[in-house]
Design a protein around this nucleic acid. Sequence first.
DNA 1: GAAAAAACTTACTACTTAGTAAGTTTTTGG
DNA 2: CCAAAAACTTACTAAGTAGTAAGTTTTTTC
Lengths: 191, 191
Amino acid sequence: MASRTGDTREEIVRLGMEFIQTYGYNAFSYADIAKKLNIKNAAVHYHFPGKEDLLIEIVGQYIQRYHDLARALEAPGLTSRKRIQAFIDRYTTLCDQGKICLIGSVGSDYFTMPETVKKKLGELVELVLGMVEGVLRDGKKKGEFSFPETPRVRALLMMTNLAAGVQLARITGQKDYKAICNSLVKQLADT
Amino acid sequence: MASRTGDTREEIVRLGMEFIQTYGYNAFSYADIAKKLNIKNAAVHYHFPGKEDLLIEIVGQYIQRYHDLARALEAPGLTSRKRIQAFIDRYTTLCDQGKICLIGSVGSDYFTMPETVKKKLGELVELVLGMVEGVLRDGKKKGEFSFPETPRVRALLMMTNLAAGVQLARITGQKDYKAICNSLVKQLADT
DNA sequence: GAAAAAACTTACTACTTAGTAAGTTTTTGG
DNA sequence: CCAAAAACTTACTAAGTAGTAAGTTTTTTC
């Protein structure tokens, strides 16, 4: 009865991620997923016995996406500016969809998360921070960027600006988010 | 049977705020509050018929606290640096308690919130941003601060750094949060 | 095309959720 | 000290939650 195209399993993960980034982890149920996919509750449990299993898979796929992005950014011929813009664009896409960063979403419910998920979230954060840090360090070395902080701290600042920026955009609208993005780019400018 | 000291009503609000900032809005129940106060479920409903009513009161009191802070910062004899530090200190206190900013917490579950709460959240954000913006503008005028952005954008940047900073601290520890704080202060330095 | 494995549905459990109606205790004010 | 208002408790509902066991359909594989 479900959509014949593709994998039900993948659809569950896709929807789960969408729900987490839209409503939060503790605000969606297996029933919500089942309803949207026109399958029964138990079918979701067949693929992911517990909500914890689903969450682990979601975070895992999110990590995979960032690995892919990190890989893509290693391509030669890209300026550091374009590399950092690709990172910012990820958040802008989220913002346009009314979603928020997975890290920010799960960060709010962090203490309700199982230990296995907490560990994977640590992995995810280090991956993202490391990626941005690398781009910033490289850009600074090449004289494309100029900033007073260490690349690590600059990465922290950018990431927190973007993560909270998309959350804030829900409340105050996108104008403030855009202002943040513009400022972030300017701050890196080689003056 | 409940604590004889003070108001049950106030205790409910206090606990509700604590739960929201620790576990998230959709991760605590009236039963959790009742249990901690040694009262029955229905007693909580007596003071706040619905969860929405409680949430409105919580956000209202949070707004009041920021009004009080804004008032306190108007006292003469305070340097702009001390004023902005008082703002940062609020977040540091949260961070030390493992809590996160109410705005950040509710931002994750934003689309599950009733309209009345969304409106009050807009109020809260404008209040906080306006307060920080005022301090920054004043400090710049007096030559205490030096930054290239408008005070509004600088306020946005600081607030998002702090809000996401305390969330991140749950995952990566307080070291990164401290680095953010240090950097924020330095960025305002009159070089 | 039959056996076997995968992907489901049906039908259920045990628990938690917000919320309410009616009665009881406690506090307060005249 | 007594009436009335406030602050509860008891006992319940209706709906939603994650999760499971057993049976059915669909798909794959040989």
